[in-house]
């Protein structure tokens, strides 16, 4: 099959080079710029490597690189560290809530009659196809002080003062749980659906009551789905920007928002890069975990 080697090479090389150029190389550029300084120019940072300038110019430029942005970001005086911690906290709590909400739904879907399962699956996926921005936006009208939720609650007589929901961390949790829910349900569902139901019958036959059977049989067998779903929600949630920006308050700190502010309001590309590099370092372990799960799922035989 030596003749088809060239085709093979092309099939691998085209996507490989594309991703190397547009996914891998940019990280090195981000790292380099995180070591540079802001200037009012185009591009708004220096040094700019001018390869035509020869070795001396490059060495000179290399000498200008330093870790000043990192000491700025990592200083307790600036709120970045708090934002990292708060992002991890918000993402972790949201992921836990997602699991709590998503697991019963996925479980019920997997145990539903076979004939309606595709329909249920479509109903879960459908919101995912509609715009993320729209779904977040829809909560503004619900959570605002004069919003639909407060109207509903006061109509019930449950409250006499409107609840402060919009622009709080609670709203951020609701937003994240709402928009990430399909990402949690789908891996859970595929893990639970694969499960052989006769296992539970065998457990019952051997004298195990249903709740114990759930913890001893169903839950351990669904763990791959649990891990996949949690990572699929946790990692992007840490860097989430739109949800805290639209639903969170001024005291809701998330690192994605800080990065965006640094980039678009303060116009400091170098600090934004340093924030991005540090965020990537924080996320590298869960990302590698996720990749292993994904790889095992796709290639595990």
């Amino acid at each position: 099959m030596a003749r088809s080697n060239r085709e093979r090479w092309l099939v691998v090389a085209i996507p490989y080079l594309w991703l190397a150029a547009l996914f891998l190389v940019p990280f090195f550029i981000v790292f380099k710029i995180s070591l540079s300084q802001d200037v009012t120019a185009q591009p708004p940072y220096e040094p700019v490597f001018d390869l035509s300038g020869g070795w001396d110019v490059i060495r000179d430029a290399l000498g200008q690189l330093n870790f000043d942005n990192y000491s700025y970001v990592l200083s307790w005086d600036n709120e970045f560290l708090m934002a990292y911690v708060s992002s991890l906290k918000i993402a972790a709590i949201s992921t836990f809530l997602l699991l709590l909400v998503g697991y019963p739904i996925a479980y019920a879907m997997a145990r539903a009659p076979k004939s309606i399962r595709p329909t249920l699956l479509m109903l879960v996926i459908l919101p995912f196809w509609t715009s993320f921005l729209i779904r977040v936006y829809s909560w503004i009208g619900i959570l605002s002080p004069e919003g639909l939720l407060n109207q509903f609650l006061s109509w019930l007589g449950a409250i006499d003062q409107p609840l402060e929901l919009l622009n709080t961390d609670t709203a951020v949790y609701i937003g994240i749980v709402y928009s990430y829910l399909p990402f949690m349900i789908l891996p859970l569902y595929s893990a639970l659906e694969k499960m052989d139901e006769t296992l539970l019958e065998a457990a019952a036959d051997l004298g195990c009551p249903p709740l114990a059977a759930f913890w001893k049989i169903t839950w351990p067998l669904s763990l791959p789905g649990v891990f996949a779903g949690c990572l699929l929600c946790f990692i992007p949630a840490v860097g989430e920007f739109v949800i805290p920006d639209l639903l969170g308050g001024s005291d809701t700190m998330m690192i994605g928002k800080s990065l965006w502010t640094e980039f678009s309001v303060n116009r400091s590309w170098t600090v934004a890069s340093a924030v991005a590099v540090l965020l990537l370092i924080v996320l590298v372990v869960p990302i590698v975990f996720y990749q292993n799960i994904q790889q095992r799922q796709m290639e595990g035989r």
Binding site: P15, Y16, P26, G239
Partner: peptide, 23 residues
């Protein structure tokens, strides 16, 4: 290669966006 395929699935948008801009 497989790392470059699976990482963007979960990479926060702000990182992807910023890095592409700088490229």
């Amino acid at each position: 290669f497989s790392g470059m395929i699976y990482a963007p699935l979960v990479m926060p948008d702000v990182i992807t966006g910023l890095s592409l801009l700088l490229l």
